[in-house]
Design a protein around this nucleic acid. Structure first.
Lengths: 138, 138
DNA sequence: ATTACTGCAAAGCATTTGCAGACTG
DNA sequence: CAGTCTGCAAATGCTTTGCAGTAAT
């Protein structure tokens, strides 16, 4: 598996583990958990420890190239490349499948907040229900 | 503090702990964590163990009278009475203040999902930013 | 050679579970 | 009295932290 050809981040050491984590994230169209990423990196033949993956993800989030998302029921967090496209997801309550949503409800929405001077910097939207498969199977 | 005068749930034993948890939830205008609830019940002079609070909350959620919400960064879950008003919140990134939002972006929104047959049962919306106080203080 | 990064182990936290004793209906 | 609920302790699962050795510049 080839490494990212994105310019490497300034002032940060380019290690095998970091390149691998980045590569896995770039190759995925769905957000991944730290465990997923760790498993994938190992499957790609690279040694890495889970705690290291967490540290790398934390770094990437801080550098702004990765976004951390907390899914339904706050079981665990998932991460995805910050592709600067605004994305939200629908999650199947049965099989946990993550389905991408192509539009955003917040685009033309003005929140009516009790605190009039709340300065909004971001939002999180999540839809849940049942995917085609689970809905059909009952 | 008086107990709820809502009719008690059928087939469920009415214990001091359950009444206290319900009472605390009813008396709160913001969602509370299990720990918050436990502390409040104890402050009200009732003995309760945290694991019991979790069990009670799980029961209430299953019975449909309480809603579980997972807040930003999936630190921990919060619970609120299911008042059958659709509510969302804005959370201050600095002081964690929870501000109620009086409208809902999903009302007139049709999600464009990659899985055309996704059956939507619910959603979660969360806004974050800085409250008046934190925004002013810098 | 320095300094940053990783492996590994162990701790931390919210939450869950098992079991015996206590309480409700 | 029978069945359910709670106290308590211990386990669980994701995530974080400490430290010494390893690798990057």
């Amino acid at each position: 598996m080839g490494y990212s050809n994105v310019e490497w981040l300034a002032g940060i050491k380019k290690t095998r583990q970091r390149q691998s984590v980045l590569s896995v994230l770039e190759g995925s169209s769905v957000p991944l958990s730290a465990g997923d990423i760790c498993a994938q990196v190992r499957k790609d033949g690279e040694k890495v420890w889970l705690s290291t993956v967490y540290r790398i993800l934390e770094l990437f989030v801080k550098k702004g190239i990765v976004t951390k998302i907390s899914m339904l029921n706050n079981d665990f967090a998932v991460y995805e490349m910050n592709r600067f496209e605004h994305k939200h997801y629908a999650i199947c309550l049965s099989c946990r499948k993550v389905v991408q949503m192509d539009n955003c409800p917040m685009e033309k929405f003005i929140p009516q907040l009790e605190d009039n001077d709340f300065y909004v910097t971001g939002h999180k939207v999540e839809i849940y229900g049942y995917c085609k498969k689970c809905n059909t199977q009952g």
